[in-house]
């Protein structure tokens, strides 16, 4: 790992200022992806701005039909939250299946979505539930936020402060984990929201998370696993790597989607 200047931000405004002032700065939340990336010298920022000292970024609140999760809330805290378990159990279950216990103690929702790993779990949850990403300057829909593989709509000095999830009528997330990394080989989040049924797929797409319109239409009329039995996603734009071929991922999408629908009941 190349050396860098380290700064501990005292507030969100302070973090934005420090990142703007840095030559090539990077925000660090839990560091569960960033630190391994630095070790492999896949990134070598001049400055790291640590958000862990900004106390008001961590925490969970429920207000009516909205669950708000602070950007620095760890996966472990989301998984253990009675509020989340009650309001959106699928989201608590998703958090509980990220990485391992030690990673869940450090990794955060803000860090995960800012990284937008094409095999990360949270992007599927955000898209399917119709979440709103709140930053220090604006609010944007999850669909506008996730742009492509490891790419988001965030500006260089923009800091995610929270993610707001509307409570779904029913929802479930099913993932086929890579047995070594626990990243999603394919993960499908299905939710029936006030805005209709949404199906979001992670782990498979070359541009990261995506929705499956055909499954959404079929489920709108008949929310059963049978309704999507015959629907498969073409494998043209799916990933092929040492873990799975595009063809296998296409197959898994239908299998995981059916299981998610069955689990959502």
């Amino acid at each position: 790992m190349y050396d860098f200047n380290y700064h501990r931000a005292e507030s969100v405004a302070d973090a934005a200022e420090k990142i703007k002032a840095a030559e090539d700065g990077k925000l660090v939340a839990g560091g569960m992806t960033l630190i391994p990336t630095l070790k492999q010298r896949l990134a070598s920022p001049s400055d790291l701005v640590d958000l862990s000292g900004v106390g008001d970024l961590a925490g969970i609140s429920v207000d009516g039909n909205t669950v708000t999760i602070g950007a620095m809330t760890t996966h472990g805290a989301v998984a253990a939250s009675d509020d989340v378990k009650q309001a959106i159990p699928a989201l608590a279950a998703l958090a509980d299946n990220i990485g391992d216990a030690q990673v869940r103690h450090r990794g955060t929702i803000g860090g995960s979505i800012a990284n937008n790993d094409p095999a990360a779990d949270y992007p599927a949850g955000c898209i399917a539930l119709g979440a709103t990403i709140v930053t220090n300057t604006r609010e944007l829909s999850a669909e506008d936020f996730f742009v492509g593989m490891f790419e988001t709509a965030l500006e260089e000095d923009e800091v995610i402060t929270a993610v707001r999830f509307p409570v779904a009528k029913r929802a479930a997330y099913m993932k086929f984990p890579n047995p070594a990394s626990r990243y999603a080989l394919v993960g499908v989040f299905v939710a029936e929201t006030d805005g209709g049924v949404r199906v979001a797929v992670t782990g498979a797409g070359q541009d990261g998370v995506f929705r499956v319109a055909e499954m959404e239409t079929a489920l709108s009329g008949n929310f059963t696993a049978d309704a999507i039995e015959g629907i498969s996603v073409p494998d043209d734009d799916l990933n092929t790597d040492i873990h799975a071929s595009a063809e296998y991922r296409a197959h898994l999408i239908t299998v995981m989607a059916k299981r998610a629908v069955a689990a959502a009941g």
């Binding site: 391994p36 216990a101 030690q102 450090r106 070594a180």
Partner: peptide
């Protein structure tokens, strides 16, 4: 492993287990 996977470096920070190969010493101030 030094890649956050094996857990040999597991210690407790403020009472909970973490992988000390994936936390900076400055973060532990």
């Amino acid at each position: 492993c030094d890649t956050s996977q094996c857990g040999a470096c597991c210690v407790h920070v403020n009472g909970t287990s973490i992988k000390s190969c994936t936390m900076l010493a400055v973060q532990a101030d």
